[in-house]
């Protein structure tokens, strides 16, 4: 009797590596499966279409979209400056910009509070101008932008640096002004990275919880985004919390799918 070994892709991998890899995968996937198994499918539609759910979803989409636009408007120039410009302390700036990535969101919320809050750094100035940010939808957008911005900056900056300035030099010698070079050459060349960075930023904004609850408060239709609604629903209606969680999982899976696609397109 002969034993036939099946050839595996990546056959240089030691067999034992599959065990921790499998456990790791289970650790990530099992909770999701468990959650999905708890979804009460019969009630799903009414739960998702309740007034508070729809309001939270609409608010989340609106604020995340606004935050994403802000991220693009601010993050693209940031990425370009960090990748291209030469100034003292650039390496430090590069690290600091990524800080919100590693900070617990609650810390971000507290930091925002001490900046834009009434007694914050800019709070008095803003109050004189008649602007109140805390407890407003603006605060939600600020919190989301704060946490999402590094995702866009990090993916775009890397792409710009990898792309190099060869094409930009050529464009300049063809008579293109810097703005035209940026819009017609630099950005189209890094478009896949810009797209995936934007999608990631949107996803991060959509999932933002800690900074929002710390900084913006929680009021239906004003500051209570989907994650806050889920957290609150958990108190009284776990089924609704699970149903709304499912919405976020679906959005996250879609987002990952989108970035994977743009990611593969960008590789030559």
């Amino acid at each position: 009797m002969t034993i036939r070994r099946r050839p595996h892709a990546g056959s240089h991998l030691p067999a034992w590596a599959f065990v921790p890899a499998g456990i790791g995968a289970a650790l990530v996937l099992l909770p999701l499966v468990a959650m999905v198994s708890r979804v009460s499918w019969g009630n799903l539609w009414p739960l998702l279409t309740s007034e508070s759910s729809l309001t939270a979803l609409a608010l989340s989409l609106r604020t995340s979209a606004t935050a994403t636009v802000l991220c693009v408007l601010l993050g693209v120039p940031m990425a370009l400056v960090l990748a291209r410009a030469r100034f003292p302390g650039r390496d430090l700036a590069r690290s600091l910009v990524l800080l919100p990535l590693v900070l617990p969101p609650v810390v971000g919320g507290i930091a925002l509070l001490y900046t834009f809050g009434r007694r914050g750094l800019l709070g008095h100035t803003l109050e004189v101008l008649g602007v109140q940010i805390a407890f407003s939808t603006t605060a939600v957008v600020l919190a989301q932008t704060f946490v999402a911005l590094p995702f866009l900056v990090i993916s775009l900056e890397g792409a710009v640096r990898t792309a190099g300035d060869r094409y930009e030099t050529v464009a300049a010698t063809l008579g293109a002004r810097p703005t035209r070079v940026l819009l017609r050459v630099t950005l189209p060349l890094v478009a896949p990275a810009l797209a995936s960075g934007t999608v990631l930023a949107f996803a991060r904004a959509l999932g933002e919880f800690g900074a929002t609850i710390t900084f913006a408060g929680s009021l239906q239709g004003v500051t209570r985004t989907l994650p806050l609604e889920i957290y609150l629903q958990r108190e009284t209606d776990p089924d609704a919390a699970v149903a709304l969680s499912l919405v976020l999982v679906v959005v996250a899976v879609t987002v990952i799918g989108l970035t994977r696609r743009t990611g593969t397109e960008s590789t030559p």
């Binding site: 002004r177 070079v181 189209p188």
Partner: peptide, 21 residues
């Protein structure tokens, strides 16, 4: 005078055609 305003064209070793156009 910045490069774009010089009226000086440059042809390099590689063609460096803009790949997206």
């Amino acid at each position: 005078v910045p490069p774009h305003a010089r009226g000086v064209g440059l042809l390099a070793q590689e063609a460096r055609l803009f790949p997206h156009l």
